[in-house]
């Protein structure tokens, strides 16, 4: 897994999209792996009683998937400093979310990537991730 360096990245660069089928298993497995036991993330009957059409992804997972999306691109020497997201439509089981990203700023050694995760109903998440890329030829230092 190679890491990107500052010189590899320019404002306007687009990250390869990540297409994620939102299986019921994914919704439940990620909710439990993030220790989120709220019923709306694993029990369809209770989720529907509370007005949702089905179980839906929890927020910790949305954060986790965005973190994964960024380091899939930037590599193991990247350091994420901030993830700021705005939540939109729910990620219901059975839908598909496509995450896309664009480098929006590169300043003082920090990169900002604008990310959007969209499903069939619209944007589930929009936000920014601030990170520091690995320094050229200096892997292993901080």
């Amino acid at each position: 897994m190679n890491s990107l360096h500052d010189t590899d990245v320019n404002v306007g660069d687009q990250l390869a999209p990540l297409v994620l089928p939102l299986t019921r298993s994914l919704i439940v497995a990620t909710a439990l792996a993030s220790r989120d036991y709220q019923d709306v993330h694993h029990d369809p009957t209770l989720a529907q009683q509370k007005g949702s059409q089905d179980i839906f992804m929890n927020i910790l997972t949305t954060n986790g998937l965005i973190g994964r999306y960024i380091t899939d691109w930037a590599g193991p020497d990247s350091i994420i400093k901030n993830v700021s997201i705005r939540l939109g439509v729910p990620n219901y089981a059975g839908d598909t979310m496509t995450i896309t990203g664009t480098v929006t700023s590169k300043q003082d050694g920090q990169i900002v990537v604008g990310v959007v995760g969209a499903n069939s109903m619209g944007n589930h998440v929009t936000g920014t991730v601030t990170l520091v890329l690995g320094a050229t030829g200096q892997g292993g230092t901080k």
């Binding site: 986790g64 899939d72 193991p76």
Partner: peptide, 24 residues
């Protein structure tokens, strides 16, 4: 568990030697 569920394969989380060689 987290990485399995998220599909996150960044080696700095689970691969001790790759993590040691990384910025972390």
């Amino acid at each position: 568990h987290w990485c399995e569920a998220m599909g996150d394969t960044n080696p700095v989380y689970l691969d001790a030697s790759a993590a040691a060689a990384s910025v972390h």
